[in-house]
Amino acid sequence: MKKRDEEMDDQKWFNDQFKDKITRFDDLHAPLIPSSQQFDELVHAHKQERSRKLWKELLLFWITACFVFGLMLWIIERNWVWFAILQTIVAAGGMVFASMAFSRRRQREWKS
C-alpha cells in the first residue's frame, strides 16, 4: 500500500514538473510526415530487397550443401576410415559450437 502511494506520488511529481513541458517540446518538434506514396514505396522496396536477399541465401545454402555432400561421397569412395574420422570431428565440433552459443546466450540474459 505504501509502495503504491509512493508510486502515485512519483507520478504526480513527474506530471507537475515535466508533462506539459515535454508535450510542448513534442509539439514544437513535430516532424513533416512523408506522403502515403513514399511509405508505399518504402515498404515495397524493402520487401523486394529482403526477398532477393533470402533467395540469394537459399541459393548459397544449396551450393554449399551440394559441395559438402559431393565431398563426403568422394571420401566414402576413397577411404571409409577417413570418412568416420571426419564425421566424428564434425559432430564433436557441432556439439561444442552449440553448447558455446547456448552458454553465451544464457550469460547475456543474466547480464541484462
Partner: peptide, 9 residues
Amino acid sequence: SELLREHYS
C-alpha cells in the same frame, strides 16, 4: 504502409 505512416510522428 498505412500503419507506419500513422505512427511515424
